Computed example of a mutant assay.
Amino acid sequence: MNYDSFIGNKADFPFEHRVLNTILVYGIGITALAMIMNYLLDLGPVIVGISGVLCFTFGILYYLSLVRKKCRLVRFCVIFLLVFITTPVLWITNGGLSGGSTFFILTFSSTIAILLRGYLRIVMVGCLALVTLGLIVAEYWHPLLISGYNSGFARYADISCGLLIAIIVNTALFIVIINHYIDEHKRANQYLAEMDRQKIESLNRQFGRVFNASPALMAIYREKDYVYLAVNDAWLASLGYERHEIIGLTKEQVDILLPEERQVDLSELTLGTLAEIKVRTKQGEARDWLVSKAKIQIEGQDCILLSAMDRTVLNNMERKIAHLDRLNLVGEIAA
Rank of each mutant, 00 (worst) to 15 (best):
C161N: 09
C161T: 10
L163Y: 06
L164E: 06
I165T: 00
A166Q: 02
I167E: 08
I168P: 00
N170G: 08
N170S: 14
T171W: 13
T171D: 14
L173H: 09
L173I: 14
L173F: 11
F174W: 15
V176M: 11
N179Q: 11
N179G: 07
N179M: 08
Y181R: 12
E184H: 04
E184G: 01
H185P: 05
H185M: 13
K186M: 15
K186C: 13
K186Y: 15
A188G: 09
Q190F: 10
A193D: 15
E194P: 06
R197E: 11
K199D: 12
R205P: 00
R205L: 13
Q206H: 12
G208W: 10
R209S: 11
R209D: 11
V210H: 08
F211K: 00
N212V: 02
A213C: 11
S214A: 11
A216V: 06
M218Y: 07
I220G: 02
I220F: 06
I220Q: 03
R222N: 03
E223A: 03
E223I: 02
K224D: 10
K224N: 10
D225P: 00
D225G: 01
D225S: 03
Y226V: 02
Y226N: 04
Y226W: 10
L229R: 01
A230K: 02
N232H: 04
A234Y: 02
W235D: 00
A237C: 09
S238Q: 06
E242P: 03
E242L: 11
R243V: 12
H244P: 05
H244T: 14
E245L: 09
I246V: 09
I246R: 00
I246C: 03
I247W: 03
I247F: 07
Q253V: 05
V254Y: 02
V254W: 00
D255A: 12
I256V: 07
L258R: 01
P259W: 04
P259A: 06
P259L: 06
P259V: 05
E260L: 07
Q263Y: 11
Q263L: 10
V264N: 06
S267C: 14
T270E: 12
T270C: 10
G272P: 02
